[in-house]
Nucleic acid binder design. Sequence first.
DNA 1: TGTCTATAGTTGAGTACGCAACCAATGGTA
DNA 2: TACCATTGGTTGCGTACTCAACTATAGACA
Lengths: 141, 141
Amino acid sequence: MRAYSTTRRELRTQLHEDHGLTLNDYEALYVLSLAEGQRMKRVDLAQRLVLTPSGITRLLEGLEAAGLVEKVACDTDLRVSYAQLTDAGAEKLDAASCGHSGSLRTVFGDHLDEEEIEALADLLGKLPGALDEDAACPTDD
Amino acid sequence: MRAYSTTRRELRTQLHEDHGLTLNDYEALYVLSLAEGQRMKRVDLAQRLVLTPSGITRLLEGLEAAGLVEKVACDTDLRVSYAQLTDAGAEKLDAASCGHSGSLRTVFGDHLDEEEIEALADLLGKLPGALDEDAACPTDD
DNA sequence: TGTCTATAGTTGAGTACGCAACCAATGGTA
DNA sequence: TACCATTGGTTGCGTACTCAACTATAGACA
């Protein structure tokens, strides 16, 4: 049967069935795990995930409800709040990332060789939406 | 102001404001315009746009309501119906493509040179979801 | 001090999809 | 001929997002 899509859908459903995460859930946990102190201003996280402020609010709503992320106030600026990865969140990420990044590698590896993957990553990295300079510094005050 | 996303959102809103089309609307018109007889089986169009059958039904609903695409029955197989680009659809595509493909070029051109764009297209073309062999032959019976 | 603009974030309403369940037609095969 | 698996397509329902409008804080400047 000629599958409708392939990969992206498969990745999504696998991640969802195995760990109850959407792709963006996963991405959010992943990005947070790399951030200084494992936390980020919501607005920076939004930019990093290419979401609007409301998108981030809803995404974090779910992750907070699941106890994977905590909302932490900033004492120097009452407007901002941080998304802080919890221990449970880090564990969930660990559990999911094994299978997920494996799947990713497989998907790309099926069609591209090592060198091509690197070249692709390089080119995509130059495009906006990818982490531009300032997206890399999550917590500043 | 540090924009939330950038390009994709901008492309979408520009296309929407100027011509009342979503990105997928545009893509559908574009793909149809290249197809033999400017028509395609709905299921093939779905695969090409990486949409589910229900997704295609809803997408074409809108385009049909706008008179840009017509639903044409197949006389050899009563199950299938074609999406047929109308004259109005072709005109709309013309009107939109000028600005849109210009914008696209600009977006990529701002960050990549000619050679890099070509390399990127080449690499992406190898990934699934891009037009695999059979996605190129729209109407067959 | 009051005012004005910019920024962080939430909320309500609308939308573009996916999934599951379904119906109809097709093409075997007995 | 009757049956059955496969394929094309639609519909109901849920969801992840966007946009627009809003509140609240911050910082600049009179």
